[in-house]
Write a protein that binds this DNA or RNA. Structure first.
Lengths: 240, 240
DNA sequence: TAAGCTCACTTGTTATGACAAGTTGATCGC
DNA sequence: GCGATCAACTTGTCATAACAAGTGAGCTTA
C-alpha cells in the first residue's frame, strides 16, 4: 500500500525541488542529514538520493555533495532547410565548440555500408567528435564519411564541422533521413558526457544525401537529454 | 584506475548480453549466483544488476529473477503529410489500442493557454490516454483540446483518437509544431508505463493547427524509449 | 605571505545480517 | 484427480559497520 521509505523520501525531495525549495544548482541535504531528518539508515538515505539521480533531478559529487541538476536546454531545429548546428547554437547564445576524438579511415561496418550504399569492405572515414556547449560536454557524434570526400577534405575535417565544409566546396547536403530515439548512458558514454550511469541520452541517427541523391555521411549524435532537444515543424517551408 | 567491482561485473554481463550469450528475454544469473561466481557480497551483486537495469538492458521481477530487456521498437514517422499513429502501427504489424484515463473540461493551464492562443481562464478539454502496443503499455498522452471541438465531439473522443475524428468531420490537421526531448520516469510514470524508476522516456510535445492556422490541440506523448522511436526525412514530400 | 599539511565532511565501495514479499513447483490430504 | 499447503528460491527493503577517496577550510610552517 504505502511506498517504501526511500521512495517517500525521494518523492518528498522531488516535490520540494519542483516547488522551488531547492533551486537549480542548490545543494541538497547530505546523506547524514537525511539519516537524522527521516530517522533512517545510510542505506535508505543513499537509495533516496539514488532515486533522484536516476530521475535526472540531482547529481552527486564525491566530497562535495548532491546538487539539483541545472536545466539549461538547447534546441536544435530539424526543419528543412538544413540549419548548421553551430549557427543554431549561436542564435541561442550558446558558445559551441568541438573536440576531435578520432579521425581515421577504416573498413566500413555493416550498418554504415548499408546506409551509404557501398560494399562492406570499402573504406570510409570514421569521425568521433565531442561537442561542447558553453564549455560543458553536451554530445558525442560518431559518423562515417564516404572515402573520396574524406580523402579530399582530410585536414579540414579535423578542425571544422563536416556539413559546412561540404557546403563551402560546392557539395551541399540536399536532405537527411533520420531517426530519433533515446537510450541510457553506458559506462563509456557516462564518462565522455559527464553524466551518471544510466542517464537518459538522445540519439539522432542520420544519413545525409548530396544533391545528386548520393548518401555521403551516416552517423549518430548522442546527446545529453538534459541539455538538448529537437524541434520540428511540418509546416511547408518552416524556418524555425 | 580499475573500475569498482560492481561496474566490472555489470560490464561483463553487458558484453555477454551484447555477444548473445544471454538473448532477449533470457534470465540472467540470480544475485546468489553472482555472489558465488564473483566472490562478492550481495550488495555488490545487487549493484551490478542495478547498473544493468539503469542502462535499460535488464529488468528485475521480484520472486522471478532478472531478465534481458526484450527490444521491440516501433517507429513513428514524423514526416508530412501527417500519418495517423494507428495506421503507422498497423503498417508495422503492431496491435494498437488505447485506454482513456481522463476526459474532462478544465481551466486551461498556462502552457496550454499560450500554445492554443487563448486566455488562461478559458476552458479546454483535458485528455489523458494510455497507448498500448501489442497489449503492453507503450506511451501516455496528455493533451488539451480547444473547448468548441471538445464539446462537439465529446462522446467520440473517449473511444477514438483525436486526429482521425477531426479529419473525418472536415477539420483536418494542417501542420504540427513539435519538440522532441527525453526525460526520466518519475514514480507515477514508472507505474503507468511499467518501467523502472528513472527509465528513459521520449517526450513528443506538439501543437496541432487546423487548416485556418488556428491551434486546436496541444499536448505531450510520453513514450517508453525501448519501444518507440521517431523517424523523419527532410526530403520534400517524403512519405516514409 | 605563500606553500603545504591536517582535519572534518562529503560521497563511493563493500561486507554481513535480517526480514518482507512474490513466484513456483512439489507434496499432502481429500 | 484436484485443490490447498508448504518449502525453496527469487528480488526488495533496511540496519550496522568499516574503509576509500575527493573537497575545502583552516592552521602550520618556512
Amino acid at each position: 500500500m504505502s511506498p517504501p521509505l526511500h521512495i517517500s523520501i525521494s518523492e518528498k525531495l522531488r516535490h520540494q525541488i519542483e516547488a522551488g525549495v531547492y533551486a537549480s544548482g542548490d545543494r541538497l541535504p547530505s546523506e547524514h542529514q537525511l539519516m537524522e531528518t527521516f530517522s533512517v539508515s545510510r542505506i535508505t538515505a543513499r537509495q533516496a538520493v539514488a532515486n533522484l539521480v536516476s530521475q535526472g533531478l540531482a547529481i552527486a559529487y564525491r566530497g562535495k555533495g548532491v546538487f539539483v541538476t541545472p536545466q539549461k536546454k538547447v534546441t536544435y531545429s530539424l526543419s528543412s532547410p538544413l540549419v548548421f548546428l553551430e549557427q543554431d547554437m549561436a542564435r541561442q547564445g550558446i558558445a559551441f565548440s568541438f573536440e576531435n576524438l578520432v579521425f581515421e579511415p577504416i573498413a566500413a561496418p555493416r550498418d554504415a555500408a548499408v546506409a551509404l550504399g557501398i560494399d562492406k569492405a570499402s573504406s570510409v572515414y570514421l569521425q568521433k567528435k565531442l561537442f561542447r556547449m558553453d564549455g560543458a560536454a553536451g554530445a558525442v557524434d560518431v559518423s562515417y564519411l564516404i572515402a573520396d570526400l574524406g580523402d579530399r577534405f582530410a585536414p579540414l575535417l579535423e578542425r571544422q564541422m563536416t556539413f559546412p565544409i561540404l557546403a563551402q566546396h560546392g557539395i551541399p547536403i540536399d536532405h537527411l533521413d533520420a531517426v530519433i530515439e533515446c537510450t541510457h548512458a553506458d559506462y563509456d558514454l557516462s564518462g565522455y558526457l559527464e553524466v551518471p550511469l544510466g542517464h537518459a541520452l538522445m540519439v539522432y541517427r542520420y544519413t545525409a544525401y548530396s544533391s545528386n541523391q548520393r548518401p555521403v555521411l551516416h552517423g549518430s549524435t548522442i546527446s545529453r537529454a538534459d541539455r538538448f532537444c529537437y524541434s520540428l515543424s511540418t509546416r511547408a517551408g518552416a524556418s524555425d
